[in-house]
């Protein structure tokens, strides 16, 4: 399985990354090489090996529903690129102009 240049540009676009022509070609090669190695791994017969979803048979640990003071050594203002009235400020995104569209 090889990665195409279109794949690289598509993924870069989804991640809002600017990738120029030369970089796209280089990434296409690198990612294809990674996938080629995956194909080598896929050749190993794992029919008798149960899938590993994670380490630990007990499943994910749970925590009690108790409030914990945030472990913040620095204020938000000290590392946020821009803040105003307590809000983080980001550039307005042209593709998401509608306020109602935010949220999961």
């Amino acid at each position: 399985m090889a990665v195409t240049r279109e794949d690289v540009l598509h993924i870069a676009d989804l991640a809002r990354l600017g990738v120029d022509g030369a970089r796209a070609d280089a990434l296409t090669k690198e990612l294809s090489a990674i996938l080629a190695h995956m194909e080598v791994l896929s050749a190993v017969d794992t029919a008798s090996v149960p899938p590993t979803d994670g380490i630990g048979a007990e499943g994910t640990p749970l925590r009690p529903d108790e409030r914990v003071s945030p472990l913040m050594e620095r204020t938000l203002e000290s590392f946020a690129p821009a803040m105003r009235d307590g809000f983080f400020i980001v550039p307005r995104l042209a593709t998401h102009e509608d306020p109602a569209e935010s949220g999961a």
């Binding site: 307590g86 983080f88 980001v90 307005r92 995104l93 998401h96 306020p99 935010s102 949220g103």
Partner: peptide, 20 residues
Amino acid sequence: EEDAGKSIHDRYPGATAIDL
């Protein structure tokens, strides 16, 4: 699943305010 934060587009001109 987890909820996302709130983005407020009409508070400051040309910018989006984020409340997480």
